[in-house]
Each structure stands twice: as structure tokens, then as C-alpha cells.
Computed example of a mutant assay.
Amino acid sequence: MSLSAGMGDQKIFDYHEESQSEKLARKSKETPIFPVAIALCVGAVGFGAYKFNKRGNMSPSVFLMQLRVGAQGLAVGALTVGLAYSMINEYVLKKK
């Protein structure tokens, strides 16, 4: 499906089904910090899987809830740093 502008044949919006790898590549080009956020989240999950056996007498649901909050915190922190970096480049340093 495509949307044409006025009388011309120029396409404004070209829609096609994206595969997961195409979507990841597009998001990486639009926001370079996005893969870093994903890597931090995957690292937190890997760390949690490693530490799961050494959780002591903590219940699995509490451990997994804390792990989820930590992984989300890392992802949001990485995206915040990326947003601050892009805002500094655009508004303070005024790169063109």
C-alpha cells in the first residue's frame, strides 16, 4: 500500500511488511543507542540467569521481579543518555 501526494506519482509513505532483522536495522540507523540498550538488557538477563541458582532463600518471583526492574532501568538509562547526547549535539553545539 502506498499513499500518493496530490496529482504526482511521488510516494510519501511506502508500507511493506518488515522482517525483524529489517526493523532492527532501521531502528539502529534512526537511533544508534538502541542496540546498546538492547545489549544492556540482554546482559542483565544473562547475569540474572547466572545468579538464579545463587539467590539463597529468596523466592523465584521476587528475584525475577528485581531482575526485570534492573533490566528496564539499564535500558531506560541508555536511552536517556542517547537522548541527552543528541539534544546536546543539536541544541548546544548546533552541528549541522
Rank of each mutant, 00 (worst) to 15 (best):
S28I: 03
L67K: 06
K23V: 00
F13K: 07
A5K: 15
A84N: 08
S59D: 13
A71I: 04
L79W: 04
G82F: 06
G46A: 14
F52Q: 03
G48N: 00
E22G: 04
G8K: 11
R68L: 15
A84I: 15
F13D: 08
I33F: 12
S2H: 09
G56S: 07
G8T: 12
A37S: 13
E22L: 00
Y15L: 08
S19R: 01
L3I: 10
R55G: 00
A84K: 04
A71G: 15
G8E: 10
A5F: 14
P32N: 00
Q72H: 05
P60C: 12
Y15F: 13
Y50Q: 14
I88M: 07
E90T: 08
S19D: 11
A84M: 07
M58N: 04
P35C: 06
V92F: 14
K29W: 05
L64P: 03
N57L: 11
V42H: 01
L74Q: 14
I12L: 15
Y91H: 15
A78G: 05
G73D: 06
F63S: 05
L74D: 13
Q66V: 05
S59A: 13
K27W: 13
L40R: 09
E18C: 09
V45N: 10
V42R: 12
G56I: 04
P35T: 00
E17V: 05
M87C: 11
I88C: 08
A44W: 02
L64K: 07
L24M: 14
L64M: 09
K51Y: 02
L3M: 06
K95P: 00
P60A: 15
R55H: 04
I33E: 14
C41T: 10
I33W: 07
L83G: 12
G8Y: 12
Y85G: 05
F52M: 04
I12Y: 09
Y50M: 15
Y15K: 02
V36G: 06
I12K: 09
V45Y: 06
V42N: 11
M7L: 15
M58D: 08
V92N: 02
E17L: 05
S2L: 09
L67G: 12
T31C: 07
Q20F: 12
K54P: 01
I33G: 13
S28T: 08
L79G: 14
R26N: 02
G82V: 07
K95E: 09
P60I: 10
Q72W: 03
Q72R: 02
S61W: 03
L83M: 13
I38Y: 13
M87Q: 09
K95G: 01
M65W: 03
V69K: 04
K27L: 15
E17D: 09
I33P: 02
V45F: 05
N89E: 14
A37V: 00
A37Y: 08
Q72N: 12
S61H: 05
K51L: 00
I12F: 14
G82S: 12
S61D: 11
P32T: 02
N89G: 10
R68A: 15
E22V: 02
L93S: 03
P35M: 02
N89S: 04
P32H: 00
S61L: 08
K94A: 06
Q20V: 01
G77V: 06
F47T: 09
V81D: 03
K51T: 07
E18T: 05
L79E: 05
Y50S: 02
S28M: 01
S28F: 08
M1E: 06
H16F: 10
Y85H: 11
G56H: 04
I12G: 05
E22P: 01
I33M: 09
M1C: 06
M87T: 12
